[in-house]
Write a protein that binds this DNA or RNA. Structure first.
Length: 289
DNA sequence: ATGGCTGTTATCCG
DNA sequence: CCGGATAACAGCCA
């Protein structure tokens, strides 16, 4: 379930454990998981690099690297994207490589692993994708006017528009449904109609921000769980040890995956619909317009 | 056991 | 250009 909040939590974990480390050696087990070069060239570009930091931009992890062959101060960026099932972590050299390892890096004392069951994720030295991203929804000065203008031009449903990473970056299928529910907006409403309704639009921006912020707060309280065999029980790879009964964990979704269950606000059964081949969950009562 | 579902997005086509 | 459909893939669940 890596959307913005999950990637944020991951970046906060990876940053401190990887910063300062030098990549001694690397192996790519699934060449299609890397871009834009062959494994040989990709690895030669990587080996010897010192990791300066790991940050998040939208749903991307941005690894800032310094290569030994280049000038001091010059940096190379490596992008990581988790797709739907990507996991990245540092493990002991003694532990076996997980079944769906796409690639790994030898960090001398331990190893960095990228595993990905469905293999939709990527690690890429091509940073073009960054230039096509819209603003960070959690940035201090969110450009409301631009957001409004971009929504104006489209007859598409608002739910589908919210998944467009060039509109606003980091929202995925779960939090799009969640934000619309909080804002009381029907997922079927057209983008342009929402854009023309100032109070709805403000509510939407606010709900997007609050839903993401809240998910980060929940995530940062949960222990990360890397055991290869560990079931993620739908909570990404957060562990839930010790917080099984925590309401903020149990009730972290208002509508997502709650088909037929009562809306937490009005008790009306939650509905499921398909938009753009993806599931949308909503409350027909709270989100009638 | 088979078929339908799954958190993403690049790319193709009309 | 826009928007819809498809493909990339494996596992889980009814």
């Amino acid at each position: 379930m890596p959307e913005l909040p999950e990637v944020e939590i991951l970046a906060r974990y990876l940053g401190p454990v990887l910063s300062g480390r030098v990549i001694q050696q690397a192996e790519v087990l699934y060449p299609r998981s890397i871009r834009p070069w062959t494994p040989k060239r990709w690895i030669s570009n990587l080996v010897g690099c010192r990791i300066l930091s790991v940050e998040r931009r939208a749903k991307f992890l941005v690894f800032r690297l310094h290569s030994p062959s280049s000038n001091p101060g010059s940096e190379t960026l490596l992008l990581g994207h988790l797709g739907m099932t990507g996991r990245m972590y540092v493990q002991s050299l003694k532990d076996p490589l997980p079944k769906h390892t796409m690639l790994w890096w030898d960090l001398r004392q331990d190893r960095f692993v990228y595993e990905d069951v469905r293999r939709f994720g990527r690690m890429s030295f091509d940073t073009e994708a960054l230039s096509e991203l819209g603003p960070e929804p959690l940035s201090k000065e969110f450009p409301f006017q631009i957001f409004q203008e971009k929504l104006r031009g489209s007859k598409q449903s608002i739910k589908i528009r919210l998944l467009d990473q060039s509109l606003l970056a980091g929202l995925g299928n779960i939090y799009a449904s969640e934000a619309l529910h909080i804002a009381g907006i029907s997922p079927f409403r057209s983008s342009q109609s929402v854009a023309g309704d100032d109070s709805s639009l403000r509510a939407l921006v606010q709900s997007i921000r609050s839903v993401l912020q809240k998910a980060i707060r929940v995530g940062e309280r949960l222990p990360l769980e890397w055991n290869p065999g560990a079931r993620s029980n739908g909570v990404f790879y957060y562990g839930t040890q010790g917080v099984e009964s925590d309401p903020s964990v149990l009730e972290r979704f208002q509508v997502y995956d709650r088909f037929g269950l009562p809306c937490r606000r009005c008790r009306t059964p939650i509905q499921r619909a398909v938009q753009g081949q993806r599931s949308t969950f909503y409350c027909p009562q709270c989100q009638s317009a």
